[in-house]
Measured scan of single mutants.
Amino acid sequence: ASVAVIAAGTQGNIFATSALRSMRFLQILRMVRMDRRGGTWKLLGSVVYAHSKELITAWYIGFLVLIFASFLVYLAEKDANSDFSSYADSLWWGTITLTTIGYGDKTPHTWLGRVLAAGFALLGISFFALPAGILGSGFALKVQEQHRQKHFEKRRMPAANLIQAAWRLYSTDMSRAYLTATWYYYDSILPSFRELALLFEHVQRARNGGLRPLEVRRAPVPDGAPSRYPPVATCHRPGSTSFCPGESSRMGIKDRIRMGSSQRRTGPSKQHLAPPTMPTSPSSEQVGEATSPTKVQKSWSFNDRTRFRASLRLKPRTSAEDAPSEEVAEEKSYQCELTVDDIMPAVKTVIRSIRILKFLVAKRKFKETLRPYDVKDVIEQYSAGHLDMLGRIKSLQTRVDQIVGRGPGDRKAREKGDKGPSDAEVVDEISMMGRVVKVEKQVQSIEHKLDLLLGFYSRCLRSGTSASLGAVQVPLFDPDITSDYHSPVDHEDISVSAQTLSISRSVSTNMD
């Protein structure tokens, strides 16, 4: 405001104040949320940038038409019409005319000016109207692209899951042992070998009828009888010197917790746990005396209480009078009846079946994303299906024409109403129809010849004498029936064969 007042002088105070007050009108834009329509302006900018070359070309040609039209109309009207006294007036008329506004304040009066105005109007309006069409088509394409992008975003994750499931299904095939990355992934998420051994031990116990592997080994086996189970490696608790092959000598807290839970599941009659010990102070733990958990001091820290809870689970003690015997301790020893080589084939089979199920689920979810969402998608899918159906029908028609023997030239002739090819031409065609016709002709010829021969033979049998045999009239074959199959017997006289037959029969009768 200060700059405006200084620039306008003393009389500019009122002007500056009114100008600043008129800017209050811009507050109405906040009512229509114009300040939060950044996406709309961004869309407009992207459309203009995408079609910038077309817009520049249309505007450039339109500007050239405007300059030439205004100049030529000015030359034609400057002497006869006072409205075109300057080139600026003519340029104003050209702008209003070519933009199809047409105020009518300035019009050419001479015939030359009117002809020039009409010609440049028809030429220039087309170029001035091009930017509107370019922007409209650009907006339509952009909206369609955003629509497809939205659908693509919805299909991206199911497609990625389907590709991942397909690759993992491919890589978990037993015949592709060189693909090891997927197996490394499952090695990292699978439970430890100790848990798998416990699982298979329970399965084997159920197969043995509820007997433990130790009891199965204690059962008497006759001499020479084959053992029911192959000899396997035996594993004891981590306190002993022997372990399962492939295990580490260090046992983690999870393994100890699972070991304690498995020992508690063996039965309360074979294992008696004394009350857990509780320390009397955060600094020292008295293991010899058993106290109640309700006497825990409230001033303990979080670490002390955590250690106390761990001691409740991981440090059970047995009383002296209830101490288990050596046999019970041997039964409680952890027996590992299986090795990694025995378990891994079954584990890989389970993983393979899981990968198949996940692949089928991913495939079903991806197919669900291909379903249409709204009416536009339904129409688009219907149009695509219609085009596909037309293509299939056209391909089927082409194959039928190839089989029947109607080529493209014959199809055009039928469409024009011309006469089709004759039967002889159809026979000569190298097509399925021509071959079928040729075979039918040959079969008819053979059938006719057989009928003639059978009739001749029956007449010979009825006559009974050589004289009557020679008097029999043998009809000749019709050459038209034989089609294109020409037998060497067709052109010979059958009477010669009949005479030869009669001579042979007379000779045979004389010999008798």
Rank of each mutant, 00 (worst) to 15 (best):
W167C: 13
S192C: 07
S171P: 08
D374G: 09
H386D: 11
I446F: 13
W167R: 03
Q397K: 06
Q397P: 07
L396Q: 09
P345H: 11
Q397E: 12
D374Y: 07
K367E: 12
L396P: 08
Q473P: 01
P372A: 10
I393F: 15
R364M: 08
Q381E: 12
R392P: 06
R352P: 01
G405C: 07
L179P: 09
R406W: 11
F366S: 03
T172I: 05
D388V: 09
K412T: 06
I354L: 01
L453P: 05
P372L: 05
K412N: 08
S301T: 12
Q473R: 09
L169P: 02
L357R: 06
F359S: 12
R352H: 09
R392G: 05
D173V: 05
S171F: 02
R168P: 08
W167L: 14
I403S: 02
K376T: 07
E321D: 11
A166P: 06
I257F: 10
K376E: 03
I403N: 11
R392Q: 10
I163N: 15
K394M: 12
K449N: 07
V287A: 09
I503L: 14
G407E: 08
V400E: 06
R392L: 10
F302C: 08
K367Q: 06
Y184H: 08
Q381L: 14
R168G: 11
R411S: 06
P475L: 14
I354V: 12
R265L: 10
S383T: 07
E368A: 13
F366Y: 03
L370P: 10
T369P: 01
W167G: 11
T294P: 08
L370V: 08
R406L: 07
T182I: 13
K416N: 03
E380D: 12
V216M: 01
D374N: 13
L454W: 12
E326Q: 14
G409E: 06
T280A: 08
R414G: 10
R371P: 07
P316H: 11
E285D: 05
E368D: 03
I393N: 10
D377A: 11
I163V: 09
A166D: 07
Q263L: 04
M259R: 09
K412E: 07
K367N: 12
K332E: 15
W167S: 06
G405D: 06
I163S: 13
R392W: 11
E368G: 03
V350D: 12
I503F: 13
Q286R: 04
K449T: 15
S171A: 00
V507G: 15
L179Q: 11
M389I: 12
M389L: 08
H202R: 14
Q381H: 09
Y185S: 15
Q473L: 14
D377H: 15
A181V: 04
M432T: 13
G391D: 03
K394R: 04
G239R: 06
Y373D: 08
S395G: 14
D388A: 12
Y170D: 08
I379M: 12
S319F: 10
G420R: 10
L357P: 11
D374A: 07
D377Y: 08
K358T: 04
R399G: 00
D374V: 07
L390P: 08
K394N: 09
S171Y: 06
L450P: 10
R399P: 04
K394Q: 07
H486N: 14
T369R: 10
P372S: 04
T369I: 04
K394T: 01
D377V: 10
G405A: 14
L370R: 05
L390V: 11
M389V: 13
P268T: 08
D374H: 02
L450R: 14
V507L: 09
F366C: 01
K394E: 09
D484V: 08
L360Q: 09
I393S: 07
S333C: 13
D374E: 07
R168S: 04
K367M: 07
S468G: 02
L360P: 09
A362P: 07
D418N: 08
Q164P: 14
S431R: 11
I393T: 08
L390M: 05
R207L: 11
I446T: 08
A165P: 03
L198R: 09
P372R: 02
E330V: 10
D322G: 15
R313S: 01
R168C: 04
R168L: 04
L370Q: 05
R411W: 08
D173Y: 09
Q402P: 08
I393M: 13
D388E: 13
P372T: 08
G405S: 08
Q397R: 12
D173G: 09
T172N: 02
G405V: 03
D490E: 12
K416E: 03
M278K: 14
R462S: 15
L396R: 12
M389R: 14
S242Y: 08
P372Q: 06
K412M: 05
I163T: 08
W300S: 13
K449E: 10
Y186F: 11
D173A: 06
E321V: 13
Y373S: 03
T369S: 14
V296G: 14
D377N: 03
Q297L: 05
I393L: 14
K449R: 15
I163F: 06
Y373C: 05
S463P: 08
F308I: 05
R364W: 04
P316A: 09
R505L: 08
L450M: 12
